[in-house]
Amino acid sequence: MIDAEFLINTLSLGSLYALLALGLVFVYGILKLVNFAYGEYIMVAGYGLFLLGSYTALPLWVIMILSVLLAAAVSYLTEIVAFRPVRTKSLTAMLITSFAISVLLQNAALLFVSPRSRAVRLPAAFSQSITVLGVTTPLRNVLTIVTAIVLLAGLTVLMKYTVLGIAMRAAADKFTTTRLMGVPANLVISVAFIISGFLAGVVAMFWIGRSSSVDPLIGFAPLLIAFIATVIGGMHSLAGAVAGGFVYGLLFNMLSILLPASVISYRDAFMFVIVILFLLLRPEGLIKGSYTEERVG
């Protein structure tokens, strides 16, 4: 069963899930906030594709870039407008705020566009197939893997070798002490949201690339996957999120192959059983990480 096709499928699914989980953990690491509006940044990028594609004559690749940037901008905006004012109050206040943003963005899409799904156009390359390692696979899958490699490498350089990255890792460890070094609190938090939104935007291109359509509730499934992947991999390090994404992709594909056809539709239930097992047996996830639980004050 472990053939080249399985490998490519798993790598591409894992890459997508790793980027998803990473976006969630970037914000969690610093604010200790599970941002429930994260899935809506994906939706926003989807509507960016739809609106720009319908009402402008821009080339598709320009539309894609703009849509990814739109997700990053909306993420940044939610930080400034909604999270910043409640940041020092309590974690509960922030959680409720993130629910509110999620519902608000969904309703905006319902109201201003449509409750029904809308078709989006993506470059032809997204639906073409190519043959690698003797396997014919959608080019999209290969693009996912390449994108993940490029982004993970870029983020690694950012986090390891730039002062901003060092400051962000420090802030995830001890937020107040990081400020005592002169690092502005707003800077690290804003950057975390921008990176988070950017990753959501990139994921949106591939997520929406499968169905070529977008609807107001499209953000829910990816949010859930990101959440489960971080439970598996560990909430407390960026490496854990990436590992969790790949392990999730692997488990999912293995279940797809191993489960008899009669129960395949219960695959999600099996995934949840695995998650519960992780929570029971290894609550800190695969990679323990070193972030403390200190909250932003």
Binding site: V163, R169, A170, D173, K174, T178, S290
Partner: peptide
């Protein structure tokens, strides 16, 4: 209040952040 996951060099680099 050392940054435990950062290297000594990175701790010192952040010390110099403000100036």
């Amino acid at each position: 209040e050392i940054f435990t996951s950062l290297t000594v060099a990175e701790n010192l680099r952040l010390g110099a952040f403000s100036s």
